[in-house]
Simulated scan of single mutants.
Amino acid sequence: MLKLENITQSFEGREVLRGISFSAEKGEIVSILGPSGCGKTTLLNIVLGLVRPTGGRLVYDGEDLTRVPMERRGFNIVFQDYALFPNLNAYENIVYGLRNVKNRTTDAEVKDLVKLLGLEEHLQKKIDELSGGQKQRVALARTLVMKPRLLLLDEPLSALDGLIKESIKARIKTIARQFQLTTLIVTHDPEEALTLSDKVLIINEGRIAQYATPMEIVSAPANDFVEHFILSQLTIKRDNIYKLFEGSGR
């Protein structure tokens, strides 16, 4: 469904991305993982259409979108800070984008999505009355009612912890499976990427360090960087590392 071919990006003569090539199938969750400054957010912006790559191609469903503007791609993003409207309640935020798009999503579909995300009791609340997890679910709902062809998430769990984080992870997985929605997630957290994704794209200094399933990365890291970056940030010992995949379906 999504294919990037030899994507490069330079800003003021500084090369940020160097020959990035990978593909993601329909309904797959792919995490883009790496340290700060590695180029992962730039890559997400290229896919979204906010940034045009210096070189390479971006193809979706057989169509070359490299020079197609963002508003014509049909991709949608949930930003790290949620970008919700504070003067509107949760429901008004969710349906805001439908005002200028007729027949995109029915009232019944909105209701089903609200139920899927567990937001029924929060619809009349103002944004400042919601918890971090509730804001994240409202932001997801607002994006999903627009029926995106591709879902992009920028650090969706960074402000969450504990049971709330696990709940949002479960909902993201359910959404990807139920709607067969290809999903790209930018994260700096290896444990988050390994337990949430079908595949993980690890970037180091603008290059792909490894692109593989979580199990492949854990069992056979491609190089010293991958092994150190992954293992140094996990909260469990290496002997118990495979517990990351219990109940995750990975």
Rank of each mutant, 00 (worst) to 15 (best):
K3Q: 13
L4S: 14
I7F: 03
Q9K: 15
F11H: 14
R18I: 06
I20W: 00
S23D: 15
E25M: 09
I29M: 07
V30P: 00
S31V: 00
I32V: 15
C38D: 10
L44D: 04
L44H: 07
I46Q: 13
G49K: 14
G49R: 15
L50F: 11
L50G: 13
R52C: 14
T54Y: 09
G56M: 09
R57T: 07
L58K: 02
G62L: 11
D64I: 12
D64N: 14
D64K: 06
T66G: 10
R67M: 04
R67Y: 09
P69L: 14
I77G: 03
D81S: 15
A83P: 11
F85K: 04
P86A: 10
N89M: 03
A90D: 02
Y91K: 14
N93F: 06
I94M: 00
Y96I: 09
L98K: 05
V101Q: 13
K102I: 06
K102T: 03
T105E: 06
D107E: 15
V110R: 01
D112I: 08
L113A: 03
K115A: 14
L116T: 12
G118L: 09
E120W: 01
E121A: 15
E129V: 01
L130R: 09
L130I: 11
G133M: 13
Q136S: 01
R137M: 05
A139Q: 10
A141N: 12
T143L: 03
V145S: 12
K147I: 09
L150W: 04
L152A: 11
L157N: 09
G162Y: 02
A170M: 08
K173V: 12
A176W: 00
A176N: 04
Q178S: 08
F179T: 01
F179A: 10
Q180N: 10
T182H: 01
L184Y: 00
I185T: 12
I185M: 02
V186N: 00
V186G: 10
P190A: 06
S197E: 03
I203K: 04
I203S: 05
N204F: 00
E205W: 04
G206P: 10
R207C: 12
R207M: 14
Q210M: 00
Q210R: 02
T213R: 11
S219L: 12
H228K: 15
H228I: 02
F229A: 05
F229D: 05
L231Y: 10
Q233C: 00
I236R: 11
I236H: 02
N240Y: 13
I241W: 01
F245P: 08
E246L: 08
G247D: 10
